[in-house]
Design a protein around this nucleic acid. Structure first.
Length: 465
RNA sequence: GUCCCCAUCGUCUAGAGGCCUAGGACACCAGCCUUUCACGUUGGUAACACGGGUUCGAAUCCCGUUGGGGACGCCA
């Protein structure tokens, strides 16, 4: 049996981190088993679904590198099919019209709340003669669910769970306007699409029992289920916009790499022994449902950032350049000259070694892009004491006639330090400030070399003055 | 409230009854390396929620307590 998985986001907002992980797990599982990974947009809520949200989700998935097989299925376009299934159930006596009004249902819930009873539909139209139907009320269609016995879900992550059917009420299949409700649509679509493994967030776990009842009423085979624990915010509470529930585009903007996010998300809830750095290729070979954890995880930026630093260092300079060039242009407030691009290309390796995100990388590269003395950070400016300025002037003079290669620069500066009777560190740090405007940068000889004689001397003299 | 799920360092996790003096990673602290920072490296602080069982033996199995989460829509 070929594995078929799906990711089924509802386009009522951006692709958040939990959805991204669900997509990743589905994608990995399908790839692992040489199966298919489908995408279904659950847009049956016409009020809340938007085209912008669809774009944002597709965009997020593409950025993450989670390509889907075949065409996207828009659930709303299948409404007629869903209604047809409900009609079939109706015809078979497995579903019925319910004329209870929203007000009645609200009262039912109120009453239940007051009496500390579970909030459920009481089945008042289940066996009632349709001829008693009130005039002018459009009915919904409800599933005639079993009232005795129990429903069992075997979950690949959570194991076997049993619920008493008395706990479940007759769910709505079709709204009074004839449109299908999510519970019906998922079941019909998953069946029609040949989904073999439903991998989704644990928030759907309780829904599964009702869905299984539907599968049973329809005589359809139940797919495998795997409910993965939710991701919480740093404070352990449900992820909300206040903590980590950002769209994946926000992570892109913060300078995270898709590969890093994939690795981080993978380890959030799944493990392979002590392995931490897991490439996507490796993940495809290893991923399974047995090692998905059962408890919720908290989102931790520090770990993501550390992973990102790793992937940043692993990424070839040529791939990083286009990601960073536009940002640097914005940073210095002018278009990048050819000389600037050239310096950035040569300097990027040195800077990426000490950057954790693309944002840090861009910022760390900006001094290469400028012409003339870079603005000095506060901490850096403080280092430019009169004595330091004197040292810089001395070095500038020593450097002017010297050959401009890294080894040569090093020996020139070292010779200068020796003759001046000071330590290299006392020369290097003021030099760094003059050249980069910062106390943090790649090796000072690398910087001199890349900046070139002319540009270096301009900056040194400006600092010495 | 009812039902369901979950529970190992601050965080992510390894752990499928003896291999556990509970391992790794991130974060944190200290040392080394070094022209700064970062990388790297060495070491350190730090956890089996609690209480009962079962067993020769429990982080691992069972029950309860506590705590956290989820679901209870003509939303998905």
């Amino acid at each position: 049996m070929t594995v078929v998985t799906r990711f089924a986001p509802s386009p009522t907002g951006f692709l958040h981190i939990g959805g991204a992980r669900t997509a990743l797990f589905n994608w990995l599982y399908a790839r692992r088993h040489g199966g298919r990974y489908l995408l279904r947009v659950e847009d049956t809520d016409r009020q809340r679904s938007t085209a912008e949200a669809i774009d944002a989700i597709l965009d997020g998935l593409s950025w993450l590198g989670l390509d889907w097989d075949g065409d996207i299925i828009y659930q709303f376009s299948r409404a007629a099919r869903h209604a047809e299934v409900a009609q079939q159930l109706l015809a078979e006596g497995k579903a019925y019209h319910c004329y209870a009004t929203p007000q009645e249902l609200e009262e039912m819930r109120e009453q239940a709340r007051r009496e500390n009873r579970p909030m459920r539909y009481d089945g008042r139209w289940r066996d009632r003669d349709p001829r008693e139907a009130p005039a002018g009320v459009k009915p919904v269609v409800r599933l005639k669910a079993p009232q005795e016995g129990e429903t069992v879900v075997i979950d690949q992550v959570l194991g076997k769970v049993t619920v008493q059917n008395a706990q479940l009420d007759d769910m709505v299949l079709l709204r009074s306007d004839g449109t299908p409700v999510y519970m019906l649509s998922v079941v019909v679509d998953d069946h029609d699409m040949g989904i073999t493994h439903v991998i989704r967030g644990a928030d759907h776990h309780t829904n599964t029992f009702r869905q299984v009842q539907l599968y049973n009423a329809l005589g359809w085979q139940v797919p495998e289920f795997a409910h993965i624990p939710l991701i919480h915010g740093p404070d352990g509470a449900k992820l909300s916009k206040r903590h980590g529930a950002l769209g994946v585009d926000a992570y892109r903007d913060m300078g995270y790499l898709p590969a890093a996010l994939r690795n981080y998300l993978l380890r959030l809830g799944w493990s392979h022994g002590d392995d931490e750095i897991i490439s996507t290729t490796q993940a495809i070979q290893w991923f399974d449902l047995e090692h998905v954890g059962q408890s919720p995880a908290r989102f931790d930026f520090a770990k993501l950032t550390s992973l990102n630093a790793h992937y940043l260092r692993e990424t070839p300079d040529a791939d990083l350049l286009p990601l960073v060039l536009p940002a640097i242009g914005r940073l210095i407030g002018e278009p990048l000259s050819d000389a600037a691009r050239e310096r950035i290309a040569r300097g990027i390796n040195g800077v990426k070694q000490r950057s954790r995100t693309l944002v840090e990388l861009s910022a760390g590269l900006a001094f290469y892009a400028r012409s003339g003395a870079p603005p000095a950070e506060e901490k850096a400016a403080a280092l430019l004491t009169p004595a330091a300025r004197g040292v810089i002037a001395g070095v500038a003079a020593a450097l002017e006639p010297a050959p401009w290669t890294e080894p040569a620069l090093e020996s020139t500066v070292k010779a200068f330090a020796e003759s001046a009777g000071i330590k290299l560190g006392q020369v290097a740090q003021p030099l760094r400030v003059a050249l980069t405007g910062s106390t943090v940068s790649p090796g000072i000889f690398e910087v001199l070399s890349i900046l070139g004689r002319e540009e270096s001397l301009i900056r040194l003299r400006a600092a010495a003055a």
